Amino acid sequence: MTTFLILLLVLLMGLTLFSLIRGVVAFLKTTKIDLETGQGETATDMQLLQNKMMFNRIKYQALAVVVVVILLAATR
Rank of each mutant, 00 (worst) to 15 (best):
Q50C: 12
A26C: 07
F27I: 07
G40L: 07
T31V: 09
Q47K: 14
I21Q: 12
Q47C: 05
L12F: 15
N51P: 02
L17A: 11
I33A: 01
I21C: 08
G23I: 10
I33K: 00
Q47S: 11
L35R: 09
G14M: 01
V25E: 10
E36N: 11
G23F: 01
M46V: 08
T37L: 10
M46Y: 08
M46S: 12
L15F: 13
V25Y: 01
D45G: 09
V24A: 14
A26K: 00
F27T: 12
Q39Y: 06
L35H: 08
L35T: 04
T31K: 03
L12Q: 12
T31N: 06
L20R: 01
N51D: 15
L12K: 13
G40I: 08
L28T: 05
A26Q: 00
A43G: 09
F27A: 13
M46K: 05
T30E: 15
L12M: 15
Q50D: 03
E36W: 08
R22S: 11
T42A: 07
I21S: 12
K32P: 01
G23K: 02
L20M: 01
G40A: 13
T37G: 10
L49F: 03
M13N: 15
L20S: 00
G40N: 13
L17E: 00
F27S: 09
D34N: 07
T16S: 15
S19G: 07
F18T: 03
K29W: 06
I21W: 10
T44W: 06
L35D: 11
D45W: 13
T42V: 12
N51G: 14
L28C: 13
Q50I: 04
G38H: 03
F18K: 05
Q47N: 08
L17C: 04
T31L: 14
F18H: 09
L12S: 07
E41T: 01
E36I: 15
L35C: 07
T16F: 15
E41F: 04
Q50L: 09
D34W: 00
L49A: 08
T31S: 02
L49H: 02
I33S: 01
L48M: 07
R22L: 10
K29A: 09
S19T: 04
L12T: 07
M13A: 14
L20E: 01
E41A: 00
L20D: 00
V24W: 10
L15H: 03
T30R: 10
E36G: 04
Q39K: 08
F27W: 08
G40M: 09
I33E: 00
F27K: 05
G38S: 07
L28V: 11
K29C: 08
T37C: 02
L49M: 11
T44M: 01
T16K: 14
F18C: 05
T30C: 14
D34L: 00
T42F: 15
N51I: 12
E41D: 08
G40V: 11
D45Y: 13
T16L: 13
F18N: 06
M13W: 14
T31H: 10
A43V: 13
G23S: 06
L17Y: 03
T31I: 06
G38T: 04
G23P: 01
K32E: 09
A26N: 03
T16V: 08
G14W: 02
A43Y: 03
E41W: 03
V24E: 13
L17W: 05
M13L: 15
V24R: 09
L17S: 05
L20T: 04
M46Q: 13
M46G: 02
